[in-house]
Design a protein around this nucleic acid. Structure first.
Length: 218
DNA sequence: GACCAGGCACATC
DNA sequence: GATGTGCATGGT
């Protein structure tokens, strides 16, 4: 229990430090909920910069919509998203996603977002190519559900500050945040954005973080 | 030229 | 359940 409350305090301190350092980040960078969903798949194990190029291609081809992606051929789709890497895999995943959206919600993001959170999460996880992080990104950033998103940066930063160990599961890390923080969409959104910003800038895989705003945590 | 990036599915033990 | 591997581009 003592360890538990210690983690709670450090997570709150972490939020305060990063929020003071970066300010309001206004995530996810997208124009519409459906663009969030597409971006969530395209950014799997991929630098965001490469995703923006692919999104631009989809917009240019006027297919960045449920109907557009449903109509387009998978080979053509793969070609448009080439810059995001794993493009054949991701073309199949986008196809699976729009098929799901069409069959379950008539292609409407509003209907998707109106679904009850726990049920929607379990349904998303059954879609080919959607794992826990992608599902939670969709829930939080496209559907405004209070679900905390855990990614590689989250685990890396928490490990560097000895708040979790290497074998902590996705569910365990997520539960840690959600037990400590109130179920607030704006808070979860901002905290995750702060973590990713910090990870990109100060906490890359093979670097220590001499200028990291989290120095004083450890 | 190696290393890395906002994962996931699948095979194998 | 844990571990290993394929998928692929573009920036540093």
């Amino acid at each position: 229990m003592e360890l538990e409350s210690d983690s709670a305090g450090r997570l709150r301190r972490m939020y305060a430090l990063l929020d003071a350092r970066f300010g309001e980040l206004h995530w996810w960078p997208a124009d519409a909920p459906f663009e969030v969903v597409v971006g969530a798949i395209l950014t799997q194990n991929t630098a965001w910069r490469n995703v923006t190029l692919a999104i631009a291609k989809l917009k240019e081809a006027a297919v960045l919509s449920p109907g557009g992606l449903d109509e387009i051929g998978e080979d053509r789709l793969a070609d448009l998203i080439r810059s995001s890497g794993y493009y054949r895999i991701k073309a199949g995943r986008l196809k699976a996603l729009v098929r799901f959206l069409k069959e379950e919600y008539g292609g409407s993001m509003d209907c998707l977002a109106a679904e009850e959170t726990v049920l929607l999460r379990s349904k998303l996880l059954k879609v080919h190519g959607i794992g826990e992080e992608t599902a939670d990104s969709i829930l939080l950033y496209a559907c405004q559900k209070p679900v905390f998103v855990v990614d590689a940066y989250t685990k890396r930063i928490l490990m560097r500050h000895a708040i979790i160990d290497a074998k902590a599961s996705y569910a365990e890390v997520q539960a840690l945040f959600m037990k400590i923080l109130p179920p607030d969409v704006r808070l979860y959104n901002q905290f995750h954005a702060l973590i990713v910003n910090t990870g990109k800038e100060f906490c890359r895989k093979k670097e220590l973080c001499p200028l990291c705003p989290l120095q004083e945590l450890s």
